[in-house]
Nucleic acid binder design. Structure first.
Lengths: 212, 212, 212, 212
DNA sequence: TATGAATGAGCCTTCATTCAT
DNA sequence: CATGAATGAAGGCTCATTCAT
């Protein structure tokens, strides 16, 4: 315990680490299956098959089926929100900021496609869970970052004076919908899609579209 | 169907008519309840409560719970597709056509919000039903109308030469997403939202944004 | 509905009545099985076998396994409490009242042996149910009737001045325990047991035992 | 067992002793938890929490959950039966013997309240265990000691000629029931309750109540 | 048409116990 | 001795659907 071989840390993870790792594995597998078949059409037995654990063994890693939805959501909202905050802190021009936010969002959707799919399809199921308010708060914060970017652009006179919430929703709708059709390894890369959409959107709201 | 029997009393509709009417009522009520609570969270008993019919009586009007999803979808896709076809037939300029399509789509979403909500959330459930291919075909046709409008604009040199499918999806995403937040009787009318979004989108894709 | 054959009432009970009747049947059968094997050792399948209803059909008559415990208790506490109240209202002498209460209690235990057994063994399970406070109240009221009878006897100088609650508990313990061994159709009748125990108990607490 | 090896250190008990001691500790803790929540409502995890041992470690000390019930029972029936035998051997007068037996029983209930509670509530669970016949035999022997005391009193003409088994059961019921309400550290001591109940009972069955 | 009792498959979850480490 | 991951059977309950009335 006192003297541990230097190699031990990586070669033989402590049991707590292994537990944590297996847990995330289970959550990701669940995300994949839920994304494929839907939450309600997936039984605990299906998850048992997909993970290789027996019905009862699953419950070492999860608190219940519904809890999985919450864990799945956290997997993608947390890094996204962190990135968005970081972008907002940079104090770039509204155009640049919007472009960066779009890139981050499309990338997050591409990286966590299963999780995003599950969330957008099944969020209603966890509406009554105590964790829902945190999830909602995170979502609101992300939306507010976009809305305030749009507001700032309007105040600075570079964006047209549009209703900021409606505009934000148009932006979000356009980008969120990519979860339905964007293939991360397809001909059109996530970054290209983000660029294309931001181009359209910026030209659409800029006072001087040539700046896009 | 065309000629109604002379004996039909108008004051007391024939039983076949009453049946038909009651059936549509049931489908609309189901749409409302499914939209509120979700398909799986709604039991036949819930529908029984909502319709005032008893569990068994319900089955005189519906073939089963899943069939309701199909009926619900038909309620909104058919008039929408019809309108879209009619717009396409008019052979307006691409800009005008896109504007009309947006108006029609937002209006349809506002008019059949419950149905749209149910469809977007639960379509996966009927993926295996034989009717699914019809639904999918209708959807594809609607998308194709938009895509070909964009293509035409590009060919005519009024729209920028963008990937037509990606652009169509951006357009659809922006507008479809309104089902989540648009209040048909709110401060901002569906028509105003359609106008605003089309404005942004057209400016975004027009070679000469001033034409928007 | 207006003119009903006189015979209909008994020969063809209305559906609501049949439901009620079947429900009580189910509760009584459950009491028997619970009394035999214990609540936890009895599965819903066991009840299904015992009632002849299928697993799901049972749930037309009961709200759940635990609810049965509550219904079972009501079956015997309500008539007993009613009788006890009636006896208390008669304002007999303390000796006579105690004798009548003992008779009523032993008879209730004999009549509802299964129910009493289940309650005395399993009451802890429903301790947290909302109905528990009603059950507890009923029990307390019954105990209070006995305690106040003893108190009255002491005040009138016919009973020795004993601690009324402790004495009441001795009385209750002696009689309640009969559920474990008294055979309603055995050599010694419930009435005889009640008489015998009341004799012992009254001699034990009377100032002048000869009055017993 | 009688002679301990000279090498045994007193300061550091041999591992066999520690094992034994830990085992009894576990049984007593289980008795407490079972008494509080009931056998079935207590999981092995609950026992794991209460003892501080992990799930697997517990099984080094116990053979299984059910075995605990048997061990719990032995904890209180054996000293009680031993005391009862000793009292019976003294050949006191029936009145004195009954008084001593009551004292012993109430004291045992007060000392082993958890164990008594568990046994009276959960004995049915071990009905099929091979040890059950021993437990039953011990119980019968204890009852027989009381019954034969009552019989002897009747034969000697000091007790009224009552049915000995019924009378014994009245006595047992009155006293056993104390497990439900007697607080060992309350205002009324176990000894006082025993005295009070024996007083009532003896007056009740003595030919000449003045002797009580 | 309408009723509602009955079905029976299936679901999520719990839990005592085992065993490799 | 101790751990805790894993097992797998069993449990209570829900629910879409059927059918005799």
């Amino acid at each position: 315990m006192a003297s541990k071989p230097a190699t031990a840390k990586t070669s033989r993870p402590r049991s707590a680490e292994r537990y944590q790792q297996r847990r995330e594995e289970v959550v990701d597998i669940a995300a994949r299956v839920f994304a494929e078949r839907g939450y309600h059409a997936t039984s605990i037995d299906d998850l048992s098959d997909a993970t290789g654990l027996q019905r009862g063994g699953l419950y070492h890693y999860i608190g219940g089926k519904q809890e999985l939805l919450i864990r799945i959501h956290e997997r993608f909202i947390e890094p996204l929100l962190e990135t968005a905050r970081e972008i907002a802190r940079r104090q770039e021009s509204p155009e640049v900021e919007l472009r960066l936010l779009a890139q981050a969002l499309v990338q997050d959707i591409a990286d966590y496609r299963d999780q995003v799919t599950v969330f957008l399809h099944e969020w209603r199921i966890i509406e009554d869970a105590p964790e829902w308010k945190d999830i909602r708060k995170a979502r609101k914060e992300f939306e507010e970052i976009i809305a305030s970017c749009i507001r700032r652009g309007a105040q600075e006179g570079v964006f047209r004076p549009l209703d900021e919430r409606t505009t934000m929703r148009g932006f979000l709708g356009m980008i969120n919908y990519t979860y339905q059709w964007l293939n991360p390894r397809g001909r059109i890369t996530p970054a290209a899609v983000a660029d294309s959409f931001v181009d359209i959107f910026l030209r659409g709201i800029l006072v001087d579209p040539e700046r896009a």
